[in-house]
Design a protein around this nucleic acid. Structure first.
Length: 566
RNA sequence: GGGGUUGUAGCUCAACUGGACAGAGCGACGGUUUCCUAAACCGUAGGUUCCGGGUUCGAUUCCCGGCAGCCCCA
């Protein structure tokens, strides 16, 4: 039985039948105290004004004769220190081993979430500023799926707006025939920059022309619409080239344009329900009583903005999927926007869906915002190439260039390099702002992606060498302290996955995996496995096999590839 | 001016949401390869958790008041 359940039962035995589902058992903070601890007798005693030590003793008393435990002690002000029995531990390992989900509770079964992430602007190349939303969002996507949720991963592209007038004009006037023929995102970026610069000319002729192109597009002019579609297709093609490298896959690409036709209806409803009011020619929703200021839903020039578009988007998603949650992964500059729009959505009656903003700290470069103007815009493609290059240099320095074929070396370098980039981001709490640094983003040692990959490759190699004898079957047993530490930590995997989802922090899982790999590396270094005699060898191999599965699965949930040979 | 967010070892970050002596990585110093992959392992040094109050048996965590950085709104 689950440790939490055992304690919960003991609580209700000790104090009567109320609801103790909040009672939790956590790993011991220090191995000297035992394997696990429960601090909730203290919490309960405080609530009721009881003597905490006595409360803890009552629980300990109720736990007497509990087969799972070898020892239960009351310590300090009322901690319950628990040492589990070998049988229990071995039983749990076998249980995890036998479960296709690695004992991860399927708490999301029958539930649906939409995760909205990455969301770059069309006609521009992705840069390092896009890593965070993409990588964090994708990890959440994978983690929620692992918990049994049905996930719709949606890429809310910036594919509509004034920039398309500038682009169309630029496309016609600033590109060569050749560039137009073999159109690339780089060319689009170039013609946008040229066209935008000309739009700033004194006479305003160019600017007017851009606006005219935009109006034509908005009115459905066939030629401009076809151009726009082509720009979007090329953009998505380029994005998907990046996503393929990062192991990211979307279910839908619904850009702003998709919701554009729905916006007048949203505004109508806002007006009809009295939520939106005129103010200086614009339509606004007053949220000042919630300290959220006012949100503009239609500008004085008749244009809509993000609040309106996001409301339409919620309406559309609720209608299509009826999700229990919609999760938005964007940088933290947009917090006010999301609070405003969540508040309006609630007022409009979308209370059935939980709207969640997962804000992350903006990535900067040497303390400065990443922007074209600062000239520090590092393209994602370049970052990934550099990551690969560095990893390849290390692989070749170690193994030389004779032993393996270049293609597989390059593939390995990609797995390592991209893994390093992803892990560098995922291992931080999303809330922390990251100042981009080549060496940190591409760290290959210590708390890094490659450290985890290396541990995985070593255990895989070990299993291979062990050959047929590795095939468990004989069950688990745990004898030495190092084995027990590793075993206990392996059992924490489901908890780490759940906590990562609850907190919307892949970093919780990353941190867990790093600790696990550290425990394994230490175990591996200090405990002979293949060289051990019969019972010890099998015992340790069984733990290694489980470790390999847990680490492999964990890396998969972070979206980091785990090669079997490094 | 209002709001948000961050402040922890020289640097980059953790700390399972209030628990026991605040932990890792990098960097520094020292050690471990005829031995299962040294991208590893073991050890040493390094802390007034921004400051001041408060609540509590117990605070990095919660509350109040400051200070500093970043962001958003006006």
């Amino acid at each position: 039985m689950d440790l939490d359940n055992i304690l919960q039962k003991a609580f209700s035995q000790a104090f009567g039948g109320e609801d103790f589902s909040w009672v939790r058992v956590v790993p011991a903070t220090d191995a000297r105290f035992g394997d696990y601890q429960c601090n909730d007798a203290l919490k309960y005693a405080k609530k009721l004004g009881m003597n905490p030590r006595q409360a803890a003793s009552s629980v300990a008393e109720a736990l007497k004769g509990e087969a799972a435990f070898e020892k239960v002690e009351v310590a300090g002000p009322g901690f319950l220190n628990i040492t589990v029995g070998e049988k229990w531990l071995e039983g749990r390992l076998a249980e995890m081993d036998g479960d296709a989900n690695m004992a991860v509770a399927q708490s999301g079964a029958g539930r649906k979430v939409v995760i909205d992430y990455s969301s770059p602007n069309a006609a521009k190349q992705m840069h390092i500023g896009h890593i965070r939303s993409t990588v964090i969002g994708n990890a959440l996507d994978r983690i929620f799926r692992a918990l049994g949720y049905e996930v719709v991963a949606d890429n809310h592209l910036g594919d509509w707006g004034t920039q398309f007038g500038i682009l169309i004009k630029g496309y016609r006037e600033c590109l060569t025939d050749e560039e137009r023929e073999n159109l690339t995102v780089a060319a689009l970026e170039k013609c946008y920059v040229l066209s935008a610069a000309k739009a700033k000319d004194e006479d305003g002729v160019w600017k007017d022309a851009c606006r005219a192109e935009l109006v034509k597009l908005q009115q459905g002019d066939a030629e401009n619409l076809a151009l726009w579609k082509r720009f979007i297709e090329i953009s998505i093609g380029e994005f998907e080239r990046m996503y393929a490298k990062l192991g990211v896959k979307f279910d839908t690409y619904r850009g702003e344009s998709y919701y554009n036709p729905m916006m007048p209806g949203v505004v109508e409803r806002l007006v009809a329900t009295g939520l939106a009011k005129e103010s200086e020619g614009a339509l606004v929703v007053d949220l000042s009583d919630e300290k959220l200021g006012v949100a503009i839903v239609r500008k004085s020039d008749g244009g809509y903005n993000y609040t309106t578009s996001d409301l339409a988007c919620v309406e559309s998603r609720v209608g299509e999927y009826s999700p229990e949650r919609i999760i938005y992964v964007t940088d933290d500059r947009q917090q006010l926007h999301f609070r405003q729009f969540f508040s309006i959505a609630a007022k409009m009656g979308y209370s059935g869906v939980k709207l969640v903003h997962v804000p992350f700290g903006l990535m900067s470069f040497k303390g400065k915002a990443i922007s074209t103007r600062e000239g520090n815009l590092i393209r994602l493609d370049d970052l990934l190439s550099e990551a690969k290059r560095r990893a390849l240099a290390i692989v070749e320095a170690r193994d030389g260039t004779d032993g393996s074929d270049p293609a597989s070396r390059e593939r390995l370098a990609e797995q390592i390099g991209y893994g390093a980039v992803k892990y560098a981001d995922l291992s931080h709490d999303p809330a922390t702002a990251i100042d981009f640094d080549w060496d940190k983003a591409l760290a290959l040692e210590g708390n890094s992606g490659p450290y985890l990959q290396y541990a995985y490759a070593r255990v895989c190699s070990l299993m291979e060498k062990a050959g047929a004898s590795a095939g468990g079957g004989s069950g688990y047993s745990v004898a030495t302290p190092a084995e027990k530490r590793l075993a206990l930590h392996l059992l924490e995997f489901p908890g780490a996955v759940s906590r990562a989802a609850e907190a919307y922090k892949p970093s919780v899982l990353a941190d867990y995996l790093f600790q696990l790999a550290q425990l394994y590396s230490s175990f591996y270094q200090n405990s002979p496995i293949l060289k051990s005699e019969s019972p010890v060898r099998e015992r340790r191999l069984a733990l290694c096999a489980l470790f390999a599965r847990v680490l492999g699965r964990g890396l998969e949930l972070l979206g980091i590839e785990a090669p079997r040979h490094i």
